[in-house]
Design a protein around this nucleic acid. Structure first.
Lengths: 346, 346
DNA sequence: ATAGGTTTCGCGCTTAGG
DNA sequence: CCTAAGCGCGAAACCTAT
């Protein structure tokens, strides 16, 4: 359609015996006059808008930082140097055109026209680009850009699509789960805020002790205001420290003693303080107000703190959380009601 | 050196009148017999190890998922179809070779030999690849792969190097800081473990209250065994819950009352319990053992818990952390001694 | 410079394949 | 019969060596 060597209009000043390479005898078999490309079409055809001009012949010296060799031979102004028609430059132009059109689709014929080259050359480019899969044949005379090709990370188009699919599915899954979580949260909130429920929302000493996981464990219940922070720096074994901070109110902590031991003599074991890691505060026979809320260092499963008195159960709501806006982006330490037990998060 | 069309040894069975395309009269100017590529070298030359064989002629149908058109014409077994010699396939092989050699340098002559193609074709490839700057001419007959070319994200080689540099510097910085942290930790550990220091390592009620940050804040000191876990789920504002778990021992919590208020009547404000978020446990006038270690919901800066009695200071070591092995990979909640205050981590 | 040798590679003939 | 592309001639661009 486009290509085909024009027989040279018999009167064109351009074709009239140019000073191109002397017409060698050889290869004359085909009626084709060497030198000068005869196709031009007429030059109109808006050609790719602006840009693209930056690819023009680097006439003067042109400080070519990288890329193509560096076009020597500034030669005569009207002549097109070899560089001007090089595949490399042409490729750049081609890629440029490709980048222009969003959706990365490009018509080869149009490209050939705009770039003023034989279609043949375009094929050279597309073939290679297809090889590295940066491009794909979309239809006749139509190719399409395809992101990242093989290199960089060897994800074939197959794998690529597979992963894309998987990603989409996982996203949906996540959204669904988020929805569920939100629902649950809301339900819980409503359940909790209900006046009726509030009266009954509590746990007794035994309730907690009854939980299997708490068997032979030290159980401490802590109530702290919103935004309370806790930190347990890991020093070395044997000892442990925790930093707690609260802005919005006091923190309450209850040590839940084991049911098995005779409940009622909490301070009994507390006296048995020894040279453990907690020799400090814990072992001090507090003097200010009654029994310290402390268990001695040596006796792990022991406990000495007052718990919710059985008779008063009605009054105590353990699961009383409400709304609090989270300024905190760290979702780690925000929220109401804390129940600390052993190892596993609960 | 390598290329150059071999004039065909006058006796080679291969070149002796091959059945290639009939020798057309035209273009005979140059003494060159068409058909068959005359170069072969001898086929030895280990050729790029294994691999590459996967690029061989897709003889049978070959379920070609993507990429090149799909080579029809299984044709006669000995003949090379047009697909076999296509630029696209060749490019793939070429890129493969390139990927083989680390450092991404490749000798074009060698490539031409291995791939069994005329050098000319290699040039077609390199020119295009150079165009998109995926490749760079390193030297004569030598090109080099260059990561990500223009598209994808326009990070020029300049920017790239800059970022690389920055990355390295930051890594060093990080290492240095880690070192410092470790030093500090060690120092602190030694300081703490020293018998002499242990006797004096404590803080008094006033000491803490004296800290500027704690002005008008509720301060709670918590001592918990290693591996104690705490969680403060973020529900909604206004309310807060904390979950605490400890396997290795009891947790101790002290509420540090404000100095300003007359110290001595801790239970005073405690009685003023109201319908706040902490109506539950906190407001209950505990019956089991003296005053509850709780502050009422409404009065934030209030406190009611017993603190370290002034007279006993000597006994109490607040900063008594020792070694504890961390099974936990989550370095969040592991370690001894906790001091909780307001918002900012401390 | 000039000549001779290489390496690159524009260019378009020719043809496989639909 | 026409498009897509393999293919290779031979010139330009590069190198030495004279």
């Amino acid at each position: 359609m486009v290509a085909a060597v024009a027989p040279a209009a018999p009167g064109s000043c351009l074709d009239a015996t140019p000073q191109g390479p002397e017409i060698r005898a050889g290869r004359a078999s085909t009626g084709r006059l060497p030198g000068f490309k005869a196709k031009r079409k007429l030059d109109l055809e808006g050609m790719g808008r602006q840009g693209l001009s930056e690819f023009r012949t680097p006439k003067g010296k042109c400080s070519r930082g990288e890329g193509l060799p560096s076009p020597k031979t500034p030669k005569s102004p009207g002549e097109k140097t070899r560089y001007d028609t090089s595949l490399g430059l042409l490729t750049k132009k081609f890629i440029y055109l490709l980048s222009e059109s969003e959706d990365g689709v490009l018509d080869l014929n149009w490209a050939a026209e705009v770039l003023e080259v034989q279609k043949r050359r375009i094929y050279d480019i597309t073939n290679v680009l297809e090889g590295i899969q940066l491009i794909r044949k979309k239809a006749k005379n139509n190719i399409q850009w395809v992101g990242r090709g093989m290199f960089e990370d060897p994800v074939g188009p197959r794998k690529q699509q597979t992963l894309g699919q998987e990603l989409k599915e996982l996203s949906n899954m996540e959204r669904a789960l988020d929805q569920l979580i939100q629902n649950c949260t809301l339900d819980l909130k409503n359940l909790t805020e209900d006046e009726t429920n509030q009266r009954l929302a509590y746990v007794t000493y035994q309730d907690i002790r009854a939980i299997g996981n708490f068997k032979d464990q030290t159980v401490i219940a802590v109530k702290a205001p919103p935004e309370t922070r806790l930190e347990v720096p890991d020093l070395r074994e044997d000892n442990l420290q925790i930093y707690l901070k609260s802005t919005n109110g006091p923190i309450e902590v209850y040590l839940c003693p084991e049911e098995s031991r005779e409940a009622g003599s909490p301070s009994q074991e507390a006296a048995r303080s020894g040279p453990g890691p907690f020799t400090g505060l814990s072992s001090s026979p507090s003097s200010s107000c009654g029994p310290d809320l402390i268990a001695p260092p040596g006796s792990h499963p022991a406990s000495v703190l007052p718990w919710i008195p059985e008779g008063k159960r009605k009054e105590h709501g353990y699961i009383t959380h409400h709304h609090l806006p989270y300024w905190e982006q760290s979702s780690e330490f925000t929220g109401p009601s804390v129940l600390v037990s052993n190892g596993q998060a609960y």
